[in-house]
Design a protein around this nucleic acid. Structure first.
Lengths: 340, 340
DNA sequence: ATTTATTTCGGTAACGTTTCCGAAAACACA
DNA sequence: TGTGTTTTCGGAAACGTTACCGAAATAAAT
């Protein structure tokens, strides 16, 4: 490997002079600087950032831990983060954890050994072990799409799921719907709680009674689960004229079930999703839904992380957490209710 | 930061002893080794892999350059590569180039400065500048889904597009189709050439005349382009009874156009895609297509790269390139032709 | 007890940089 | 020419590790 020494030797000068030339220091003659730059080209020299990191105690590397890079949701977030970070000279190392908490811990451990400058993480469960681990860490961390435990003084960025759910249901109500069902997942994660609560609160706000028969909370968050849930709910048509689904996959599953039963959407029932996946815009689907600003989430997470990295010593305050708004995308699965 | 020195000081021993204890060297007393391990826990010490890299001239980092991590195709490939590499203690740095050749070059440059141990790349265009750049590189490189120029002694891994296209068309022919159209992209990339050639050769093999009116090569590789292309082709029904599309997106666009025109699939026309995207399995689509072993591609690329990294000095031969087979996925868009 | 063999350890250089400090070189002014 | 100031440079330590070599400590053999 060609190093700074080789350049120094070839020119008969010292390594420190070469270093100064390469780093645009002031105390160097223009002439020698040019000679150095020339030799750099000639020898095809490239600075060794490993050595640089060792000196500067900065690797210009940050870790981004996500559950599944294959999920366009997370890959778009990661693009947002990468865009901003690479502008600032940072490399991003993506940890694909597949929601496996052992993998999560291994990734964080490895990030620490590699002396990354910061960490953006989306842990699947914020369990005790993780909290314990994170509280002993000496690099900045920001939570993405997850809420840190109260013990952790860590900022997060997420979308306002509660507000989004309220808007979605509000939209349905504004179209005249009163019999509004909900297809969701078991009330465990904070996100599930927020969206469900938004649904319930908005009904209450409009004095619409909560009908537990219109609710299906079993199953996972897949198309398959949505189809099964809708199968259960189908007997409540036509009293039930609309459905708000926890996410687009469930909504699409519902659409599938309704298509199989030959029930028209939005003619006999309206469907509202949440997430705005790319497939939701497909010709056959055209799902009305709440779009989450994924790219922005990644950018904001990166921004707050950079703030923390740069103000590590000067300022002890951690940056504010951020809740972004989702936006309503109106396609073809919701219809104004007309009373005949 | 707590270093090896802190441990040495606390125990009153030398750093070299601590180092030996941590690296399972033979010439160390069991007793002291245990004491060291204990102190490591106590002080929450973590080895600094930056310093280690500097000594060993190995970073255990490889770069993976892809056009778009948001595309499930590439994200699945990257998962395959990551799985294998992380088993071997490597970290993967993903470079998302968005098919921008400036970004590509910057990524490679950065990989070199960071002294990555190897590179798996999917360059958008293999232009002269890139070839020039790559031929001056002193770390192993493997091409993924792209063919290196002949000047480059670099292995590649890809699927056999020609063979896959032959199989797809063969399938259509075996169902009795003779009027088989092709929706594709301009014949520029090697992949486009291979698939189109497979189409033409298979027709010829079965003495089916090549009808240029049945071919649409304009546009990009999006659903939109597929729809437009099909719009142009629709007048050739019913002589044309089947279509082989360059990829699933185009095929889905064709499906969209046919649905708009109320033309039954597969009743009046059969459609065959290539790629097997996740959306191709959707209830409304159920596209018959050729599935590419994406995860395997990533794994194979990683494997050959590791071979090159580990045999860097011992053996100068580069590993063989690999062509993987795609497999036919038969869903509901192809039908046996019945003559009435 | 002395010698020899074995185990265990410490000192030091090295990896490729940057940075500090002091010294040499160049310039300005009297 | 001498003094003072500024510019430019070189030497050396440091970042946190590992690896080599020789020395000390222990065990085994005579």
């Amino acid at each position: 490997m060609v190093t700074i020494k080789d350049i120094a030797k070839q020119l008969g000068i010292s390594v420190s002079t070469v270093s100064r030339a390469l780093n645009d220091h002031s105390d160097i003659k223009k002439e020698t600087k040019l000679k150095v730059l020339e030799t750099v080209k000639e020898l095809n020299y490239r600075p060794n950032s490993v050595a640089r990191s060792l000196i500067h105690q900065r690797t210009y590397t940050v870790g981004l831990m996500i559950p599944d890079i294959t999920d366009p949701f997370f890959s778009t977030i990661s693009v947002g983060a990468q865009e901003l970070l690479s502008e600032q000279g940072y490399q991003v190392i993506i940890g694909n954890t597949l929601r496996d908490s052992a993998k999560e811990k291994r990734f964080i451990e490895s990030a620490l050994e590699r002396k990354m400058d910061g960490l953006i993480i989306t842990p699947d469960h914020v369990d005790e072990e993780l909290v314990e681990m994170l509280s002993n860490i000496n690099i900045p961390v920001v939570f993405l799409r997850r809420r840190p435990s109260k013990l952790l003084k860590v900022p997060f960025v997420d979308v306002d799921h509660y507000k989004g759910a309220c808007e979605a249901v509000e939209h349905l109500i504004s179209l005249g719907h009163k019999g509004i069902g909900y297809i969701g997942i078991p009330i465990e994660s904070p996100i599930a709680i927020d969206r469900f609560q938004g649904y319930k609160d908005t009904l209450k706000k409009h004095d619409i009674p909560y009908v537990s028969d219109f609710i299906q909370l079993s199953g996972g968050r897949t198309i398959q689960s949505g189809r099964i849930a809708m199968d259960q709910l189908i007997s409540h048509i036509p009293e039930m004229t609309a459905i708000f689904a926890y996410n687009d996959l469930l909504a699409i599953g519902a659409l599938e079930s309704l298509a199989q039963h030959n029930i028209g959407v939005p003619d006999t029932i309206s469907i509202m999703g949440f997430d705005d996946l790319e497939i939701s815009n497909l010709y056959w689907i055209q799902l009305s839904t709440m779009s989450q600003p994924r790219n922005q989430m990644g950018r904001h997470a990166a921004e707050t992380l950079l703030k923390m990295i740069n103000h590590a010593n000067t300022d002890d305050e951690i940056p504010d957490s951020i809740l972004l708004d989702s936006v309503l995308i109106n396609r073809n699965t919701c219809k104004k209710l007309t009373y005949q």
